[in-house]
């Protein structure tokens, strides 16, 4: 007779249940044990009020289909709500995207009419953006030069993103979903570097030396 080690270990914490998934066995064995645990045993824990569940995968990487499969099994218990999947590993693609998002990208040149400069993460352009040109990123945008065209920061909805330029004279500015055109008062004070930011869903302009007061959390 063989003794089978548990593939799924369930532990209770004050934030709910944590399902520790063995990362050395095959996925089929894991699913089998999970199904067994959820459907047959541990009835006293798995019934009753709503419980939040964290699935800890260790060093196992799940495809989207596999994740759905696990979600499906756990969801069979009406009182279990999946809070998150925790894994020590991510795919190369995701790692690359996260790397891009965490570093500032340096670009040189003029973005001319009809051209689009796009980036995931923060973007620093050394050059001008001319009218009809567009610069966009998921993070913040910094232009060492004249921004005369369109800038779009925080494209994925990041409302903390800012747009800064040595000369902030844009045709149009967008941060997250807020669109703004420069008004007369913007164009009056064109001395020195300025930046645009969102406050309560409204676009504001200020001098760059006031950035640390508006985004104190950026100060390390």
């Amino acid at each position: 007779m063989t003794t089978t080690r548990h593939k799924v270990t369930i532990k209770g914490t004050k934030d709910g249940l944590v399902f520790f998934m063995d990362d050395t066995c095959s996925f089929d064995e894991l699913i089998q044990d999970l199904r067994n645990k959820v459907e047959n045993s541990h009835q006293q824990i798995l019934t009753g009020p709503l419980i939040r569940v964290t699935v800890n995968l260790g060093y196992r990487y799940l495809t989207d289909e596999q994740e759905q499969q696990i979600r499906g099994i756990i969801r069979k218990r009406g009182n279990l709500v999946i809070k998150e999947f925790v894994s020590e590993v991510i795919s190369r693609e995701q790692a690359y995207l996260e790397q891009l998002a965490s570093q500032i990208r340096l670009e040189v040149g003029t973005v001319r009419s009809g051209q689009v400069l796009e980036h995931q993460g923060d973007l620093l352009l050394m050059g001008d953006v001319n009218p009809g040109g567009c610069i966009q990123s998921t993070g913040s945008i910094f232009v060492l030069g004249s921004l005369r065209g369109t800038a779009r920061a925080g494209m994925d909805g990041n409302e903390d993103a800012i747009v800064a330029a040595s000369q902030l004279l844009p045709t149009q500015l967008r941060i997250a979903d807020v669109i703004s055109r420069p008004t007369e008062e913007w164009l009056d004070q064109t001395t020195g570097m300025e930046f645009a930011y969102l406050k309560d869903g409204v676009m504001n302009i200020d001098k760059i030396n006031r950035l640390h007061r508006i985004r104190p959390e950026w100060k390390k």
């Binding site: 003029t110 001319r112 009419s113 009809g114 051209q115 001319n130 009218p131 009809g132 040109g133």
Partner: peptide
């Protein structure tokens, strides 16, 4: 000037 800018971009 706007069109010239576009053209310069294409030429580059």
């Amino acid at each position: 000037v706007r069109d010239a800018d576009r053209i310069i971009g294409l030429l580059e």
